[in-house]
Amino acid sequence: DWEDIVRFLRKLFELGEEVVIGDWHNHHREEIKRLIEWLEKHF
């Protein structure tokens, strides 16, 4: 279910905002944000 995936990604992203998950999070933050925005537009 796409909504569950979007919710999971958003939760992960919000957690990442508070607890910076090292370089991985910083590197992928923009991609995650773009992916969430893309999914919201399409689903």
Score class of each variant (00 low, 15 high):
D1P: 13
D1S: 11
D1L: 15
D1M: 12
D1Y: 14
W2E: 01
W2D: 01
W2G: 01
E3L: 08
E3A: 08
E3Q: 10
E3H: 05
E3R: 11
E3M: 14
D4G: 10
D4W: 15
D4T: 11
I5D: 00
I5K: 02
I5M: 07
V6I: 13
V6Q: 02
V6A: 10
V6W: 15
V6N: 03
V6K: 07
V6S: 02
V6P: 01
R7K: 13
R7E: 13
R7G: 06
F8T: 04
L9Q: 00
L9E: 00
L9N: 00
R10P: 00
R10M: 13
R10S: 10
R10F: 11
R10D: 04
K11M: 14
K11D: 09
K11Q: 13
K11R: 12
K11A: 09
K11F: 15
L12C: 07
L12T: 01
L12I: 08
E14L: 08
E14V: 04
E14P: 03
E14D: 05
L15W: 05
G16F: 15
G16P: 04
G16D: 05
E17I: 15
E17T: 14
E17Y: 15
E17M: 12
E18F: 09
E18D: 10
V19Y: 02
V19Q: 06
V19W: 06
V19M: 10
V20S: 07
V20Q: 07
V20L: 10
V20E: 07
V20W: 12
V20G: 10
I21C: 12
I21Y: 03
G22V: 07
G22A: 03
G22S: 04
G22C: 11
G22E: 08
D23I: 09
D23H: 05
D23P: 06
D23F: 13
D23C: 14
D23S: 04
D23K: 03
D23T: 02
W24E: 07
W24N: 10
W24M: 11
W24R: 04
W24D: 09
W24K: 10
H25G: 11
H25F: 14
H25E: 06
H25M: 15
N26D: 14
N26V: 06
N26T: 13
N26K: 14
H27F: 14
H27K: 08
H27C: 15
H27Q: 04
H28P: 09
H28G: 07
H28V: 15
H28T: 11
R29P: 10
E30G: 04
E30Q: 12
E30T: 10
E30M: 13
E31Q: 12
E31R: 06
E31I: 15
I32W: 12
I32P: 00
I32C: 13
I32R: 01
K33D: 04
R34L: 13
R34W: 08
R34A: 04
R34D: 05
L35T: 02
L35E: 00
I36P: 00
I36M: 06
I36Y: 08
I36D: 01
I36Q: 02
I36L: 08
E37W: 12
E37T: 07
E37I: 09
E37F: 05
E37Q: 07
E37A: 06
W38R: 02
W38V: 03
W38M: 04
W38K: 03
L39P: 00
L39T: 01
L39A: 03
L39S: 00
E40K: 12
E40N: 12
K41G: 12
K41H: 14
K41A: 05
H42M: 15
H42S: 06
H42G: 03
F43A: 11
F43T: 05
F43W: 13
F43C: 13
